[in-house]
Design a binder for these strands. Structure first.
Lengths: 200, 200
DNA sequence: ACACACATGTAATTGGTTACATGATTTC
DNA sequence: GAAATCATGTAACCAATTACATGTGTGT
């Protein structure tokens, strides 16, 4: 299927014209960072592969041995390949959410533990929300007339909607869990061996 | 860090008492399936490892060579390990959303392509919503008094909230994209070589 | 001269999917 | 006894992170 990393790179180059591997990582973090990540360990080998396949090419200095900045840009073939990929239905990669997993098994550890997780969840989400909004602010300033702009805004708004929903849910979840916590405490007062809280 | 798969297995056994690898996969699909997946290729090797580490043990028939059902259950050590893991803050695994990626680069292919993706997105989400609601229905019928029940409901409600937000967003997104599509068409009428829509 | 950010790359390892091969049990 | 489904397992492969090693250019 050729790693998705390949297409992030092609896509990025289609927007930015030319970038180095280093640039790409930065750009990714500052634009799609909240829903996509790439590590250098993925990017550099992929740049080689894409060059070998003729989908991208180095602008300017050719080999130049080691060290030094190398910028790449899309070839016609690369551009075609990107468009092909865009037209293919996306596949959902199997979701894995450790937060929900821990919450699901939460009974095993008592509500207090889950309360901590949910609070952490709130904080993380608020931080991500701040990042997204910052990305949006920068984008609007600098790119409002860029032809890609409305597509970017759509992804941004999606992120915002998801996080808002998550935060609203988390308030309700906290209430439920705190309710359970206090039941648990009362239970323990009345009958110390009551609603087993620890030790199966 | 020892694969998360290990903890799904431990967690499952803590709830179900004893299960075979085969059971586990089924159970996972029918409970946490919408936010977690496991393949046999992960489960079986992990069952060996966990047995070797003494965190789970085979109930009943010991070796018995090959073939035949093998049920496992938690050992005291396994139970302790699960609780340890539950208490550790969860880590967010780097998100990767191919749908958003294709939408982000959507300009490259024209709004029509994105419209298709968003429609597909709606359908997928509606299907997942149906599954979640089915899981919820079954859960309420069979487990409403189970001590884990309220934790399960929390994860379920989270899923529902996320999907509802996604669907609401998708309606707005469609409007925007369709607006772009019609602009695009009008543009093309006026100047046939205009906002390149297809064929690089 | 030194520090620091910029920049590229590789090796080791893990995590995971997929496809395949095979055996056991039930049901007709 | 054939078919279906229950059940276990392995091998090949791919994707990805992490830690490490190294080099370059700029400012002080």
């Amino acid at each position: 299927m050729q790693s998705q990393t390949a297409y992030v790179i092609l896509g990025l180059l289609s927007i930015e014209g030319k970038q180095s591997g280093y640039d790409m990582r930065k750009t990714i973090q500052g634009s799609v960072g909240y829903f996509w990540g790439e590590s250098y360990g993925q990017i550099y080998p992929m740049l080689r592969r894409l060059t070998a396949e003729g989908l991208i090419a180095q602008s300017g200095r050719g080999g130049k041995g080691r060290g030094g900045r190398r910028e790449y840009s899309l070839t016609a073939a690369g551009h075609a390949r990107l468009q092909e990929w865009l037209a293919v239905p996306y596949r959902m990669d199997p979701p894995r959410d450790e937060f929900l997993l821990k919450l699901f098994f939460g009974r095993e550890a008592g509500p207090g533990v889950s309360v901590r997780h949910v609070r952490e969840f709130q904080e993380k989400n608020r931080r991500v929300l701040a990042t997204i909004e910052e990305i949006g602010r920068l984008g609007r300033e600098r790119n409002a007339r860029h032809p890609h702009f409305r597509f970017w805004m759509l992804t941004l708004e999606y992120g915002v909607a998801q996080i808002r929903a998550a935060l609203e849910w988390s308030e309700e979840a906290l209430k439920v869990l705190q309710q359970m916590e206090s039941e648990c405490r009362r239970g323990v007062e009345k009958k110390p061996r009551g609603p087993a809280k620890r030790r199966r």
